[in-house]
Each structure stands twice: as structure tokens, then as C-alpha cells.
């Protein structure tokens, strides 16, 4: 396990370096000038140049990159060009909202997908199965920019149950979490169904049934546990994505998370913020995947991480 962790730590450092280089180069290659975004159309050329100089944007790309990397080594992600606030402060301010939304969406998706996927597999080709798969298709097909406003119209404006947007009200989390969780639940339920169907045909399930175990035990304890590996992989990947911020959902619901911070920074060409957020998202993704790998060992003791023997 220790060897595995060391290996993953080393590969994480490599990923961070690679991402830093790529993000830095890509954001500087994208057309658009942060100084223009800040000062607007009517700013005078001398003011533009003074600001460019003050922000260090008139330095060569190489010098800017060295400054960025040396800051990174010291744990300094720089200062936002637009708001003049440290990037780390902005990230810390936004991270709780994103974590809250990601966990809630994941929770909703698991609560919906597990029973639905099991039901569809156990009652294959029945109305239950068809209904579950129809929901799955619908969930995958509905874009969040449509589902979000639809939920707002029904549950906020129509029924008045939840606030329209923001994070400051009680129940603010419900609609964005459902919006984000629906698509994930749809994918997850399909995965549970197909994985479980595969396992249900295995010898050990037949043996369990032959031993006279109740069907409930056979399904939930023996079959489902063995069918969970691909589901956990998918959950891990999705959690990584969700922790990176759900741009559309956060925009629709004015949810002050990392996704909104990232997209706003890209549109304003706020280079330090874009670099900082994408770096944090990448590291989060790598860490979540590492944790997912470790969960494999718990779910299936035959898997021993970092031990080829």
C-alpha cells in the first residue's frame, strides 16, 4: 500500500507540473486581453500600458511562466487580476459550496440509481426494467441548462417550496443538487443494471441460490457487492468531475462554487485565477481517483494495490 501511495504521489506531482504548463500556455494563447476586459473600451492607451506593466503582463511569456512556477512551489497561486484578491483566498471561499453541491448530487444519484438499477436487473424485461431505463434515457438526455430552469419554474415559482437560486437560503441546495444528480443517477443506474446482470449469471450466484439463501440476500449481499467495482470506478470519476465544479448548474442557480469561478475567470481572461482553479481541479481529480483505487481493495479484498504478486 505504501509503495502504491508513493507511486501515486509521484505521478500526482507529474500531473500537476504537466497541467501547470498546459494551462499556462493555453490561457495565454487564447485571444483576448485581460487589460481590455478590466478597463473597457474607453480606457486611454497610456493607462492600458501602465496597468499591463503593473500586472507584469508586458514581461516575456517565459519570465511570466517562471514567476508562476516559483510562486507555485512556494504555495502562492498569485493574485486575481480583476479583484486584486489572492487566488488561494478565492478558492477557499468557493470550495465549500462546490463540495456541498458535489456530495449532495452524488448522494441523490446513489439513492436513486442503486435501487433502480437493482430493480431493473432483477426484474429484467418487465415494466419495471423498461420504466427504469426510460428514466435513465430521459436523465441522460436532459441538459442541465434546461432541467435547472424547469425545476425552478415548478418548485420555486409554482409551488414556492425552494428558493430560485443562491446559497444563502434554507433549502438552496435541493434544486441544484437534483439538477446535477439526475444525469449522474441515470448513467449510474444503467451501470448498476448491466453490471448486476453480468454477475447474476455467475456460478457463485447459482451456488448461493442452490444453498437455499433468500433471494434478498443473494441479490444485495452476494451479487450486488461483486457488481459494484465498475460502479465505484464511475462514481470516483464523476466525483472528480463534480468537485471540479459544475459550470452550467452553478451558473443557472448562481451557486458560488469553483465552476462559476472558473468560467467567470476564463471569460474575463483572469489568468492567475484560471491557472489556480484548473490546477486545484486537476489535483482533486487525481486524489479522488487514488481514493477510488483504494476503495477497490476494501470492496474486493482480492485486489491488493501496489503488490503485483
Amino acid at each position: 500500500m505504501l509503495r502504491f501511495l508513493l507511486y501515486r504521489l509521484f505521478s500526482t506531482l507529474l500531473v500537476v507540473f504537466g497541467v501547470s504548463v498546459m494551462v499556462f500556455l493555453l490561457i495565454h494563447m487564447v485571444p483576448g486581453d485581460p487589460v481590455d476586459m478590466m478597463l473597457g473600451e474607453s480606457a486611454r492607451p497610456a493607462d492600458r500600458e501602465a496597468l499591463r506593466h503593473a500586472l507584469g503582463l508586458d514581461l516575456s511569456l517565459w519570465v511570466q511562466f517562471s514567476q508562476f512556477m516559483s510562486g507555485l512551489v512556494r504555495g502562492d497561486l498569485g493574485v486575481s487580476i480583476h479583484s486584486n484578491r489572492p487566488v488561494s483566498e478565492l478558492l477557499l471561499e468557493r470550495a465549500p459550496a462546490t463540495i456541498e453541491l458535489a456530495l449532495a448530487a452524488l448522494l441523490i444519484s446513489v439513492v436513486i440509481a442503486l435501487p433502480m438499477g437493482v430493480l431493473a436487473a432483477v426484474r429484467r424485461n418487465t415494466l419495471w426494467d423498461k420504466g427504469a431505463m426510460a428514466f435513465s434515457l430521459l436523465g441522460v438526455s436532459m441538459p442541465n441548462f434546461w432541467l435547472g430552469p424547469l425545476l425552478i419554474l415548478i418548485f420555486s415559482v409554482g409551488l414556492g417550496w425552494f428558493p430560485v437560486s443562491g446559497r444563502e437560503y434554507t433549502g438552496s441546495l435541493v434544486l441544484p443538487a437534483i439538477t446535477l444528480g439526475t444525469a449522474l443517477a441515470a448513467v449510474l443506474s444503467r451501470m448498476v443494471r448491466s453490471s448486476l446482470l453480468e454477475v447474476l449469471g455467475e456460478d457463485f450466484v447459482r451456488t448461493a441460490r442452490a444453498k437455499g439463501l433468500p433471494e434478498r440476500i443473494v441479490i444485495w449481499k452476494h451479487a450486488l457487492l461483486n457488481a459494484l467495482l465498475p460502479v465505484i470506478t464511475l462514481l470516483g470519476l464523476q466525483l472528480g468531475v463534480l468537485l471540479g465544479g459544475a459550470v452550467i448548474t452553478e451558473t443557472v442557480f448562481s451557486w458560488p462554487g469553483l465552476g462559476k469561478l472558473t468560467i467567470d475567470a476564463i471569460l474575463r481572461r483572469d489568468y492567475p485565477v484560471v491557472q489556480g482553479t484548473i490546477l486545484v481541479i486537476s489535483v482533486t481529480y487525481v486524489v479522488v481517483n487514488m481514493l477510488t483505487d483504494m476503495v477497490y481493495g476494501i470492496v474486493d479484498p482480492r485486489i491488493r494495490l501496489g503488490n503485483p504478486k
Binding site: 459550496a97 456541498e100 448522494l107 435501487p115 446559497r167 444563502e168 434554507t170 441546495l173 435541493v174
Partner: peptide, 17 residues
């Protein structure tokens, strides 16, 4: 699953006033 179901309302009541 039972723990998850219990956690949902708890989560929804966090961080809001």
C-alpha cells in the same frame, strides 16, 4: 443506503439560514 437516506435531509439543511 439507509445511512445515505438519512444523510440527504441533513445535507440539505447545512450551510443555510
Amino acid at each position: 443506503l439507509f445511512v445515505l437516506l438519512l444523510a440527504v435531509p441533513l445535507l440539505f439543511s447545512q450551510g443555510c439560514s
